[in-house]
């Protein structure tokens, strides 16, 4: 047997990458073979395919599109990265965190509540925690204990991974900013373990965004990113209304770069920092309500 036949080879990745791009509209980089493999391996097993070649054939000849949908799911469902979209994190670092610290220092606030509403495997709330940790090392006017960072998701599997704070090489590379990997993780073999200082800043709970928001505290900052696509128009409107109700009057909402509130909510006013939008509750309506 030739060694070229032994490996899960490049050809298969090229085929699958093309398929995923064409059928699912998800672009995949040349160097993301391990991403495809890690996202789809379970599906290959589940569909009883011996290998990726067979899986690819099955997908290509799948008239019902069932497999195609499963592939989309596997590629996107828990897809997340460190400092996703990059720009909003400048807002967090330059505008929002300094303001939180000032509010705590002046006594205007006792405690700050941050909520990552579809936290997946934890990269989003942990990205916030890493920036906060860094800010607090420079500015001693506040401490981590004055912040409550909550990460919720509907998937227990994602939450387990999030809580454990353990990531493989592939996941570590996605979006990671220079310096943080070295400062905030310990490497053991192929796995990176988030240090406890950061890990313990975040609490994880299962929460379905379709549900009533009563169990959630009033927040100073909400991340609700890349989850609205799972909601119908009607439910999107409901979702944003519920988020609005959970946001303190000077709280902030951050959504995904490919998402928009337009057509779903008029409760928020749009702010912008370095051309990146972020949102806060409209003031007038609040007064009106009170």
């Amino acid at each position: 047997m030739h060694s070229s036949k032994i490996v899960l080879n490049h050809d298969e990745f090229v085929c699958l990458r093309e398929y995923i791009h064409k059928e699912c509209g998800i672009p995949i980089g040349d160097d993301s073979a391990s991403l495809i493999e890690s996202r789809l391996a379970r599906l290959v097993m589940e569909t009883d395919c011996a290998d990726f070649r067979e899986f690819y054939k099955k997908a290509k000849h799948d008239e019902s599109k069932k497999l195609r949908n499963k592939i989309i799911d596997a590629m996107t469902t828990h897809e997340t990265l460190w400092f996703r979209d990059s720009k909003p994190w400048d807002i967090i670092r330059d505008v929002i965190i300094p303001q939180f610290i000032a509010d705590l220092k002046s006594g205007r606030k006792q405690r700050i509540h941050v909520w990552s509403a579809a936290a997946s495997t934890g990269q989003e709330p942990y990205s916030f925690a890493m920036l906060l940790h860094e800010a607090l090392q420079k500015d001693l006017n506040a401490s981590a204990s004055q912040f409550h960072i909550l990460g919720t998701d509907i998937s227990p599997s994602a939450l387990y991974m999030a809580y454990s704070g353990r990531y493989n090489n592939t996941d570590m590379l996605q979006g990671m900013k220079p310096g943080y990997k070295e400062r905030c993780f310990e490497q053991s073999g192929q796995v990176y373990q988030l240090i406890d200082t950061i890990r313990q800043m975040v609490e994880f709970k299962k929460f379905d965004l379709m549900r009533d928001f009563a169990p959630i505290n009033t927040c100073d900052l909400i991340f609700c990113r890349n989850v609205s696509m799972y909601f119908s128009s009607k439910h999107k409107s409901k979702l944003y209304r519920k988020l609005y109700e959970k946001l303190g009057k000077d709280g902030y909402l951050i959504i995904g770069s490919s998402e928009s509130l337009m057509g779903y909510s008029e409760d928020f006013e749009q702010l912008s920092y370095k051309q990146t939008p972020y949102f806060r509750p409209k003031k007038i309506e609040r007064q009106h309500e009170n």
Binding site: M1, I6, V7, A41, R42, V44, M45, A50, F52, Q190
Partner: peptide, 14 residues
């Protein structure tokens, strides 16, 4: 290559 072991087994050994 950090592949799933059973997948590589299936592929090579059947």
């Amino acid at each position: 290559r950090r592949f799933d072991l059973p997948l590589v087994e299936n592929k090579i050994l059947g």
